[in-house]
Design a protein around this nucleic acid. Sequence first.
DNA 1: TTGAAAGCGCTAACAA
DNA 2: TTGTTAGCGCTTTCAA
Lengths: 347, 347
Amino acid sequence: MIVSNKKNVSIKDIAQLSGVSVATVSRIMNNSGRYSQKTRDKVLKIIRETGYERNSLATSLRINKSNMIGILVPDIANEFYASVLKKAEQALFKLGYSTIICNTERSVERETAYYRMLIEHRVDGLISVSSASNQMPLSAKYAIPIVFIDRDPHSASEMIVTTDHYAAGRDLTRLLLSQADDLCLVMTKSRPSSTMDRVQAFKDELSDRGISADGSILALNTTSDKFLQRHSDLENFIQIKHQEGRRLGVFAINDNVAYMVLQVAKRFHLSVPEDLIVTGFDGMSIASISQPTITTIVQDSTAIANQASQLLVDAIKKNNDNDVQHGTIHVPYQLAQRKSTLPEAKK
Amino acid sequence: MIVSNKKNVSIKDIAQLSGVSVATVSRIMNNSGRYSQKTRDKVLKIIRETGYERNSLATSLRINKSNMIGILVPDIANEFYASVLKKAEQALFKLGYSTIICNTERSVERETAYYRMLIEHRVDGLISVSSASNQMPLSAKYAIPIVFIDRDPHSASEMIVTTDHYAAGRDLTRLLLSQADDLCLVMTKSRPSSTMDRVQAFKDELSDRGISADGSILALNTTSDKFLQRHSDLENFIQIKHQEGRRLGVFAINDNVAYMVLQVAKRFHLSVPEDLIVTGFDGMSIASISQPTITTIVQDSTAIANQASQLLVDAIKKNNDNDVQHGTIHVPYQLAQRKSTLPEAKK
DNA sequence: TTGAAAGCGCTAACAA
DNA sequence: TTGTTAGCGCTTTCAA
């Protein structure tokens, strides 16, 4: 089974064994021409026999290019991020890059440490998903290209790929308004830019109709894992509205929170969508599994990942900074109407 | 914002700017002593001013050690693997290693390509989760340590960390037998070793009691994503048993399949666990979200990841191959009894 | 079509 | 405590 557990064989060994110079071996490895078919065959044979594998550390050092991309992501175990990650890794692999994935857990310390590590490894570019450090620009200090996913623009030269959370939030709010007497928004304590955009959309839509959002935004003290905790604010809110005979429309900040709202409703024996309507956000599987299924915004993680990867690789390849595309790219989303809201939105 | 978008500053630049030799700078960077406090301060100041970052490509090349670990995983977007991945990455980062994650999609081609890539990048070790290539031993060709997660042993010298799928499968089958008149096992076409162990346990437990497993193993033509497809085999089976007035116990190969079985039961207006009982496997969130909740084996992904990481790093650090631990490590699991089986198992 | 040689950025003897 | 130097494995002129 063990072909050669001796020391690693290097290009020098190959050169020696096949009686040519290292330069020739290198040319053959890289298909850069300037060798005869005969030498090629001979060298390739030796390479096969010895099981030689190029040391890409040395190559990267020499050509000053690592063909590695770093991805900073808040949580690999989150379904949405995992899906973006998977697609990005696929796209980048096809484009000839390997991916180093870094789980930041929204900690600025970890993010900084990872950023350093990636720079030290001389990654050719970086994708930063929903960065924690809004103050730290992950600056172009080392002049490596960075593409952000889900981030508010801080300067005109940034490359950002994102769902239009604001527009989607508006859509959802409009839908809720058409079916409910009163609205509230339920969110968690975590405040990435995507969340803030959704909240702003909610407020603006209400305000456009002359409705005050005061007191109707509930921030839950929860992590998205703890579905079954008690949340007295939310419970009170729901009960009061029900007692007043008004149908409540709940704008949940994401699908997990929407599911949690559904659980609370069930505890009070309120039926959704008859007594209470709910929307989620993201289009995660819980929204199609839960009962009732949850009306939500389905983000296109594949498109997001592909766009970001392509943009990054383009930026890496262009040496002229003016050629690369800057600014925010909005990826289309879908409003999936399901059972947690009424079947037909009335106009 | 841009501190220095000029060419990268190297150790040579630092040496020059601070009026010492590169050796001194190197010693200071690595805290290897042999320098005065005064020089240290001076050099550190220059490093800070220039924003110098070590080129770890060069370091790795020189010391023949990359501090990088590769992880081959069948699917990042799968909840169980994602969770193992996350924990492993955390553990390895703490141990001073960066992680390159490779999504193999159970394709032997991709697995091979990634393996090569990782070798070329001179990773110090490898974690292979539920490998697709049972024939290819991912051999010790390059003498780098490999820890497998979820794999059947092929040789005594392998390091394997896994839940004891066989024992857990036995437990589940016993539980089902105590509550149902007839059993069946529902699986998909995918056949990793973990699946096969579960199936074997099911068969053995039946056989120990003199029951034949013939015809009671259904392999569904489905991916785990397509919950709502029709599966006539399964449907027939369920209907027939119900007409015969016998309570069926379904051993679903994992939680997703169990959920699917629940959907089928619902279509036939059969109630779980009264008319039909079901168990899952893995302990994924769907098993606690679905209605009814699903009795399942909860795998300890954290323990698996930690064990694997620790084992790998130990193997890397030991230069003497005899010092490292070999063989299979079974990580404890939990049988979570929930609503898809009867409240109390009768003896 | 081939080879000699310089050098990418770093570490580690060894000498001072 | 510091510096000189060789060399890790590779690519790439340049010359032959």
